[in-house]
Design a protein around this nucleic acid. Structure first.
Length: 888
RNA sequence: GCCCCUGUGGCGGAAUUGGUAGACGCGACCGACUCAAAAUCGGUUUCCGCAAGGAGUGCUGGUUCGAGUCCGGCCAGGGGCACCA
């Protein structure tokens, strides 16, 4: 709750705006919103000839309320949209709803309300809230991902991907969320817990549908280099996530007498073949085929494998789990020395999912291997030493040496750098034969896994597949789409209601006509958000997208959203765009040309002595700065003021957008959200800050309002000389900088510059009543510029001001003014003059004065003469139009 | 553990990319208007100093006529990944 001092806002009541009064957003904002809607200003046509500009904010999940974080996100997008529209672009700025997902089902379970009803009601509420913000959105293109028309087309895409071989079904270990009772993608497991439920994730074997995102690993990685409109941070995170490594696949021969029947070799992936002479053991994952086979004749080993399984791979388990191994008794032959054999362990730290599920251990070069070797008494042979170290005395004791260096104890590799050794080993093993094939091959490996999309949930897009006893898996024929969600469902038992539905799951096999069963899993909701940006270009099409239309709009010129989607959503969307390209829906690879990740809105937290969180409205604060003390209003007890945190229900540090719009209006909220903090950083919501923003809004209104009579019927015209020129110069200079700042999305800088412009005009306007015609013209033009530059930020106020000065039409439909290059450069400039690097004064001189003239003028300055004390300067550095430095 | 980012007044932050450090805002203080308050307007506000002047962008060393900005070392805070072979 924003605390509004009643006295301050008495004038905000239901009175019409009059010339001498305060600006009343409660009356003006709905009025202009209506005017824009009636003029259909923001409805975008696909057949418009002007250059396109697509600005998009990540669409919200309809949780029930618009959050203040949304408000900041959409305001940024709206500033860009309004600016680009004024610049003459055909702007697409749509909004929709990411409407499938768990909370709707939770609400169904808790409140006995149908997920569909719950979702659409929420959407209705949130749409109204967004409309109050005065966003220039094209509502005619709105859709929700739970609309049948949308998920119908998503099923079409699924079938196309399936046909193209981009989807597979495989049984695999999956991350099972025991609370939500569903499978999670790797990306949705954060520190071993479900991203939504926070429950510890378990491992289960399940048959799942997978999108083959790994088919695009290389392309998704290398294309990151071209994404220069993305924050470096996000590019880096995606690179790390895809995790490319170059290494060698090496097959090791098993010593026949020790090997299980039918097994003759063990394949291992390594990125450090250079350390091959430091190898002292092999280790395989507990579910590696060799381990399983060996366990058949060895109950102790079988028990060990079982134990590893139970521990699982949760992060919590991993951190505490000891590195354990079990010697299988199997031995392998060293590829470069048939006499040298090494033991094969089953080890709990080896992952089946990466590489081949087997490694060779080099204790001297890897800390984990070293720990393992110490524990099981295995040899530690140093093979790489730092450059310049002494080979005879170099030893590994506590710490492994994993950096680059020089090879030692490695026979033919000795003296090479480890990089050279990598190549040497690789080429030799590629030539060497084992069982009739090359013993090794260079291999690029990726960390990225295929994207498992099956979810055991009701409220999601049904997977259009049918299981037939006779025919196996059969896709639903396209003419039978959509596979609609049944509406008669019950949530009395946990798990997926579709599974229990009496009729929905029974279907005839499209191939043989026999009784068959529908796939009851639905798609991960991240699928829904992986192509919605494309759907916005032709939201009512009877196909996923109209190719030509989508090609014209895409990629999204400016995409804006939270950093929390740096990997998941953005990577999936990049994959989807490629998959849609390869199935003929689109002709591009990258969905988002410009990406901007905005910071969060944060607020102080308050906590009572007994640990209860208190909301800002329950707290009274006394004192200022470091001396602030907070008291709980209800009890009068002292309250601890906590750190700034993301607004969240659990910590109660929330401020609702409605409260702000009600007390200050949308324009104030928009202005405050963008002022001060750079948009990529967090902004702290403070009542003082919001009140300050409102104060500024009123100041602009007063300035325009009071100047209006003197500007009536005056031709707007810039002045290049006389006193009027200073007004024109100020306005045009501001216009130039603000334009640049908006293009850079440096909204805080743009706002600071608008502040300066208002300060300047305010200083010059009191005399306007008695001013000459030229000054009035200049003033009129300056005010018009001011209105245009505030319009993207405070669009309602801008319209009100525009109307006040008798402007024609709507600001929202008008063109952005252009600055006069001659007015933004001064003929006389003030050069700072330094002596020995310290500023000692200024020199006012003609802009085009040459080096010699500047030098001469500088040496005549009194403070320079004084500093030089009659001696000639050692050096005079003149940086044209910047600075002068005299070295004494 | 690995990778990355950020350190500027009481606070949020500017600084044209190596050229006047602290724009703009918030807060604070002083003053005007008012019976009074609110609103509004004017002024002060990096630190030390009455002043002249001096110091100053986490610490430290360097490059340069000149460093918040570039380079080396350290410290602190934040983020991402994490048995990845």
């Amino acid at each position: 709750m924003v605390k509004v001092r009643p006295e301050t806002y008495l004038l905000l009541c239901e009175k019409p705006v009059m010339a001498t009064e305060r600006y009343n957003p409660r009356i003006s904002e709905p009025r202009w919103q209506k005017a824009w809607e009636e003029a259909r200003l923001f409805e975008t046509r696909n057949d418009d000839e002007r250059p396109t500009y697509y600005v998009l904010e990540m669409f919200p999940y309809p949780s029930g309320r618009i959050h203040i974080g949304h408000t900041r996100n959409y305001t940024m997008g709206d500033v860009v949209a309004r600016y680009k529209r004024a610049k003459g672009f055909n702007v697409l700025h749509p909004m929709g709803w990411d409407a499938f997902g768990m909370p709707a089902e939770n609400a169904a379970i808790q409140n006995k309300v149908h997920p569909k009803e719950w979702t659409y009601q929420n959407i209705a509420v949130m749409r109204d809230q967004l409309k109050m913000m005065g966003l220039s959105l094209d509502w005619s293109r709105e859709f929700a991902t739970c609309d049948v028309e949308y998920y119908h087309q998503q099923q079409v895409l699924f079938l196309d991907f399936y046909e193209k071989g981009l989807i597979t079904r495989k049984t695999s270990k999956v991350n099972w969320d025991p609370v939500d009772q569903t499978v999670l993608a790797n990306e949705q497991v954060i520190e071993g817990r479900g991203w939504r439920s926070g429950a510890l994730v378990e491992q289960r074997e399940l048959a799942q549908w997978f999108f083959k995102i790994t088919d695009y690993s290389e392309e998704l990685l290398s294309a990151i280099d071209e994404l220069d409109g993305w924050p470096e941070k996000v590019r880096l995170m995606q690179r790390n996530w895809i995790g490319r490594s170059e290494g060698l696949m090496v097959r090791w021969e098993l010593v026949k007498e020790t090997a299980p029947k039918g097994e003759s070799e063990l394949e291992v992936y390594t990125t450090r073949p250079d350390t091959i002479f430091g190898a002292s053991f092999m280790a395989v994952a507990p579910d590696h085929p060799l381990a399983r086979k060996a366990a058949q004749g060895d109950p102790a080993l079988a028990a060990f494998i079982e134990e590893c399984r139970r521990v699982g791979t949760t992060a919590a388990a991993l951190e505490t789990a000891e590195k354990k191994g079990f010697d299988t008794g199997i031995r392998v032959r060293h590829p470069f020395d048939p006499e040298w054999t090494l033991p094969v362990y089953v080890a709990n730290f080896v992952l089946m999912e990466y590489g081949t599920g087997a490694i060779f251990g080099c204790p001297s070069g890897d800390q984990r291997d070293l720990d393992f070797a110490r524990k099981y008494g295995l040899p530690v042979i140093p093979v790489v030493m730092p450059e310049g170290a002494d080979a005879a005395s170099f030893q590994i004791t506590e710490e492994a040496y994993s950096d680059d260096g020089v090879m030692i104890n490695s026979r033919f590799l000795d003296g090479l750098s480890n990089k050279q050794a990598f190549d040497e080993v690789a080429s030799r093993l590629e030539m060497q034969s084992l069982g009739g094939r090359a013993q090794a091959a260079r291999k690029v490996n990726f960390r990225l896994r295929d994207w498992g999309i099956s979810r055991q949930r009701y409220w999601g897009c049904p997977i259009p597949m049918i299981h037939c006893e006779a025919c196996g898996i059969v896709p639903v024929p396209k003419q039978d789409l959509p596979v609609k969600l049944p509406e008669d469902i019950d949530f009395d038992k946990p798990g997926n209601p579709l599974d229990r539905h009496s009729t929905w799951r029974h279907v005839k096999c499209p191939k043989c006509g026999a009784d068959a069963r529908r796939e009851t899993d639905t798609m991960d909701t991240f699928v829904d958000s992986s192509w919605y940006f494309a759907r916005f270009t032709s939201p009512r099409a009877r196909m996923p997208v109209e190719r030509e239309v989508a090609n014209r709009w895409l990629p999204v010129d400016q995409y804006i959203g939270g950093i929390e989607h740096a990997i998941l959503h953005l990577l999936y969307s990049r994959f989807f765009t490629r998959a849609m390209r390869d199935t003929g829906h689109l002709d591009l690879a990258e969905p988002f040309k410009g990406l901007f990740t905005q910071g969060m809105v944060v607020h102080e937290t308050y906590r009572a002595a007994d640990g209860r969180w208190l909301s800002p409205s329950e707290v009274r604060i006394e004192g200022t700065d470091g001396q602030r003390t907070a008291y709980e209003i209800a009890t009068g007890e002292k309250v601890t003021i906590g750190s700034l945190e993301k607004m969240s229900k659990s910590k109660k540090n929330t401020v609702s957008p409605e409260d702000i719009t009600e007390s200050f209006g949308a324009d104030t909220a928009r202005w405050f959200m963008l002022s001060d903090s750079p948009p990529e950083r967090d902004v702290e919501w403070t009542d003082d800050g919001a009140a300050g923003a409102h104060r500024f809004l009123q100041r602009v209104w007063r300035l325009v309002n009071e100047a209006a009579p003197a500007l009536e019927g005056v031709e707007p015209k810039a002045s290049r000389d006389g006193t009027a020129a200073s007004i024109s110069k100020g306005a045009h200079k501001a216009l130039k900088v603000i334009e640049h700042d908006i293009e850079q999305l440096a909204f805080n800088r743009a706002l600071a510059r608008i502040h300066e412009l208002v300060n300047e005009l305010q200083a010059q306007f009191p005399a306007l009543g008695k001013a000459d015609a030229a000054t009035r013209s200049a003033a009129r033009e300056a005010v018009e510029i001011l209105i245009h530059v505030i319009a993207p930020f405070m669009p309602h106020l801008a319209e009100e001001c525009w109307e006040r000065i008798g402007g024609e039409g709507l600001v929202a439909a008008s063109r952005w003014p252009s600055y006069d290059p001659e007015l933004v450069t001064d003929n006389q400039i003030v050069l700072p003059v330094q002596i020995n690097g310290k500023k000692r004064g200024d020199l006012t001189i003609a802009r085009d004065a040459d080096q010699a003239a500047v030098e001469k003028a500088v040496l005549e300055l009194d403070f320079v003469k004084k500093a030089l004390n009659g001696a000639p300067p050692r050096k005079v550095i003149v940086v044209p139009q910047r600075i002068v430095n005299v070295v004494a």
